[in-house]
Amino acid sequence: MMTDMTVATPVQALTKKDFESGLDVRWCPGCGDYAVLSQITKLMPKLGIPRENFAFVSGIGCSSRFPYYVQTYGLHTIHGRALAIATGLKISRPDLSVWVVTGDGDALAIGGNHFIHAVRRNIGLKVILLNNRIYGLTKGQYSPTSELGKKTKTSPLGNIDQPFSPVALALGAGATFAARCIDGDQAMMAAILERAAKHEGTAFVEILQNCVVFNDGAFDALSDKATRDDTRLVMEHGKPLIFGKERNKGIRLSGMDMEVVTIGENGVTEADILVHNENAAHSGLAFSLGQFESPDFPVPFGVFRDVDKPSYESLSQQLSESARAAKGRGDLQRLLNSGETWTIK
C-alpha cells in the first residue's frame, strides 16, 4: 500500500485520489459511510493543507474503520477514546489538521465523557459523528440515539432509553460549531464539511447515516425526494426557518418554546417566522432546534451554530509563551538548583 507514496507531493497537485489509501474498503455494500469517505477525500485536496499534516483518529465501530481508507496519518484506537487521544495529539501538535471519525455508540455511549469535554474545551478537532442509530459492528443492538420503542436484539420488547440528540448534546456542552447533514445529500455534506474544516476549535458534524444491514431505511423519510421537503428543515444563516413542499411552514417562537406554524393561516405571516442566526451568542435557540424530532417537528439540517472562540490549543500555547516571557526560557540547571537549597563545604 505504501509503494507509490514515498515522495511528498506538492499541495497544489493533490487530487481526491491522492487521499485514498487504496486499501479494500470493508463496509457493507450500500452503507452510508461510503458517501462520507468520498466527500472527505474530495474535500481534502481543496484545503491547501499538505497531506502529511492530516491525522485521522478513530475509536471502534463501523465508522472507526475510516482512517484505514484515507492516505494520511491515522490512528485506529480503542472504543470511545478517539477524542481523548486526538486531544493529546492536537494539543501537542497544533500544526496538524486532526479529524475524528466516530459513531453514535463510540462517541455518545462509551465515549460520552470525552465527547462533552473535548467540545467544552473547544479543542481544534473536526469531529464527524456518523449516526446510524444502531450498533452495527456488534450486529444490531440499540444505541444512545435509537428512538424510543425501537426493537433491536437487546430491546426485543422495545427500547425504553431516551435517545440523545447528538447536536443538542454538543450544544449543551458549549459547541462553537455544530451542524447536521445526511449521507444522501452530497452537496450539503460537502458544504458543511468544508466549513467544519475551516473552523477554529471543535467543529462537530452529525451525519445521519443509513446502516443497510441493521437499521435500513431509518432516514428514508428524510432522504426521499417525495417526503423530505416536509420532514426536514434546511437552516440558512439570516433566513427565516421555513420548510415544506409549499414553503409555507415555519418555526415561530412561542414563549420559551418553538412551534410549527403555517404561513397564511391564523394570521401568520413570514415576519412571524424565526430568522436563523448561527452566530447567536447564546446557543439556546440552536439547542431547541437540535431537539426537534419527527413527526411533530421537521428535522433541522445545516449549521446550528458557528461562533468564534479561541481554541484550547491556542490558549495553551499562549500560556507557554507568557510563562516564557515572564520567567525567561527555563534552564535545567537553574530548575534543579531551585527550592530549599544549602551548600556543604
Partner: peptide, 9 residues
C-alpha cells in the same frame, strides 16, 4: 505525523 511521504496507519 507531518513527515512527508510516510503517511501510515
Amino acid at each position: 505525523p507531518g513527515t512527508p511521504g510516510m503517511e501510515h496507519r
